[in-house]
Every structure is written in structure tokens, then in C-alpha cells.
Design a binder for these strands. Sequence first.
DNA 1: CCCTTTCTGTGACAACAGTCACTGTAGTCC
DNA 2: GGACTACAGTGACTGTTGTCACAGAAAGGG
Lengths: 215, 215
Amino acid sequence: MQTIPKELVHKKFPSLEDALLDELLAQSTLKEVSEGEDVMRSGQYITSTILLLRGLLKVYREDDEGNEFLMYYLEAGNACALSMMCTARDEQSQIMIKAVDDSELILVPSHLSELWLAKYKSWNNFVIASYRQRFEELLQTLDSIAFKGLDERLLFYLKRHVKVSGNHVKLSHQQIATELSSSREVISRLLKKLEQTGAVTLHRNYIEVQNLSLV
Amino acid sequence: MQTIPKELVHKKFPSLEDALLDELLAQSTLKEVSEGEDVMRSGQYITSTILLLRGLLKVYREDDEGNEFLMYYLEAGNACALSMMCTARDEQSQIMIKAVDDSELILVPSHLSELWLAKYKSWNNFVIASYRQRFEELLQTLDSIAFKGLDERLLFYLKRHVKVSGNHVKLSHQQIATELSSSREVISRLLKKLEQTGAVTLHRNYIEVQNLSLV
DNA sequence: CCCTTTCTGTGACAACAGTCACTGTAGTCC
DNA sequence: GGACTACAGTGACTGTTGTCACAGAAAGGG
């Protein structure tokens, strides 16, 4: 079991009370994953709650035919609410988590996580808040799929991407197409349109976002 | 405050421990709503956790332009997980709950509901289990929207409907279209196709489901 | 029984998104 | 530099969904 720097944890998760931090440090494990690595694969049995100490994860969904779509990004200082909800009985429901950047995770054994709900008020609040936040984001994703055309979904996607990692979106058209569950040609066309309005500038392997709000 | 029959509550929510039941009966209110009535409108401040004692609710979503789509049905014996998560800060996120049949709700004040998470193990489990279940259903809905064509979504919709209220689906084509965020003509066409395969029989204002599995 | 309303059926057409086929272009590896 | 590979751009075509414009059928109310 690796040692986890208490100061860093406190900084990233300021709402957690001190006694809880101590127990957390004593009982959890630290895991490092590098860019592109899978943190959680579909159908896997979840035995830990995941706290993200550093880095960036993407949480997405995959169906039997290999289609996928992005649910949301998880930034440092957040917990993966799903990791408390997913169980082995998951039939086809496939939730995948992948590291977008090199990341450090704190793995809290599920039974402790449940115990702490009653024992530590701050943990309880933290977990509930995480649920709420993720649920909100998921609903936004749902909205954009249900109500919007692909052009608006693309905008929504780019905005979200800019929010978590800045104006240089380091993605190929193919990657975007996959995450939006579309096809490369269509994304290329739409991006071209966006470029013509001056919202973005296209390059090989990355997109420079100028101004999405004026589209 | 109306009296709530303990026997019935125990029967519908067997997992809740006895001491909790007593407190619940003492501190909650009973609300009756009739078919078609709104239980929760978008943007409303949520001060209670909702337990459904009798009847059937539908939980759906509405955007600014009046489009809507069904998230899931809530049957007696279930809690509305959302009612714990939604807060006033909800900007555009619009969750609506409507009574499909005449229903009886138990309204648990939010502060008690939170308190009980620590106080009663059975409540804690119940709430977490509700979250999980609703989340799963929501993900299924998401999948069907993201990955499936309208024909498959219609099948999925009918199946779910049959599951909660039997083989006579008392809905007009227009209602189905609304809940699937589509248009009446399209639903009519697809239903006609289903009728030709023998999966359903169409009537005015209701659909008789014969066999959906063989489509 | 009419009259009105609501629901359903249908054909024609438009718009959007996905697919195919092919070109060009920028990097990378010998 | 030549070959190879991944990425990007484009036109043509297809299928699905949404829209429009009707027409007919069922229910209900006076």
C-alpha cells in the first residue's frame, strides 16, 4: 500500500473532515494510471469508490455493437458516483472509464465507503453532492442527445472539452465522431462549417477554439 | 397531517426497519393525487423525498421548447431518487413527475431523509438501492436514444409500458410520439408495421400488445 | 341525428445523418 | 527521398425521420 500525501488530499477534497482523512489515508490505496489506460471496463465488479486526486478521466458508455458515447469528464477533486452504484448484476449496461491524462486515483473499499456514510457527516454530504452533480451532467448529455441536432451536440461537446482542458482540443475528427456516436465524415463537415463562421480553426490532430458562444 | 396505515407501508416497503417506520409515520405527510395530476413541475424547489405507496408515476424531462421525453415509470414501493437530488439551483434542468394513475405519496421532509441516512441502516440501503435502480433505468433510456432507431425505441417503450400496466396500452399515438419526442405520423407508421407483423393490434385510444419478443 | 372534436391513416416531400468512394495532405520510418 | 500510414476534405447516394396536407373513422354532446 502506497502512502498518500495528506496535504494534497486535503487540498483537493477540502470538504472532508480531518478524522475521515486519517482513516481514508490509512485504509485506501493509491493507483496511478497513464494516459489512455482503462480505469474501469464494462461489466467489471466494482469493489471501490474512486476519488480522483490528479488528472482527468472520461466516463462513457458502450453498447454490444461497439458504439460508444461520452457521458462526462471527471476532474481532480471529484468522486466517481458511478463507482458506488455499479454492481456485478450489470447485464449489458456497460460503463467504461478511461484516463484522458496521466492520473492518480484513491480507491476506497466499498464497505468502508458505505460505513462512512453513517459515520462521517462530511462524507455523506460529499457522496450525495457527487451523485447530484453527475446526475445533472448526465441529464444534460441526455438532453443534448434527445433534443438537439448533431451540430448543437458538437458545440456542446466542444464547450465541455474546452472547460476541462483549454482551447486546444487535441482530438482527431474520428475521436470526436466516436464519442458522439457519429461518423468522421459528418463531423468533418460540421467542423468545416464552424470554421467558416470563425468559431474554430482546424489543424491536423487538434482544433483551436476561438469563440463558440457566437455561433 | 393524515394518518398513514403502517401495515400498508410495511407491505410496500418491507426492507425498512420498524423503528424507522414509526418515525416515518409520525413525521411524514400523505398526499393523494389523481390521474393526470402533476406531482412535481420543473424548476420547483424540492423539500421532500417521495415514496410511492400506491399508483403509478411517470418521470420525464422537458426542455425549453416544450419537447419532452420519458425517463422512467415509478411503481408503488419505490422512492423517487431524484427528489433527493434535485435542488433549487436547477437552472434549465426540468424534471417533471406526473401521476399516470391515481396515486398516494408519502412525503418525507428532506432534512429527515438526510438524517436517517446515518441513523437507520435500512434507510441508507434503501436510498442507495433506489439511486442505483433509477440510474440503471436512466442509462437504458439513454442507450435506446443514443444507439437505437425509432423503431427499436418504440418497442422498448411498449415493453416497458406492458411491464408496468399490462397488455392494454391505453395511449393515443400522439401521446406515444410526445413521450418519445417524435411525431404522431411517424409513430402511426411504425405501429402499422408492427401490426402487420402481428406484434400488436391497433385500436382507437389503445393498443393491444400480442407479442413483442418475436419482432 | 347532426355537428364537432379527436384520433388515425397515407402520400408527397424535405432535411439530416450515415455510408461509400476517392483525393489530398501531413507526418514517420527506413 | 520514397513508401507508408493516419488524418482530413468532398461529392454522390441512401435511409430514416420529421413535416405538410389531407381524408376518413370513431366518439360524444346537444
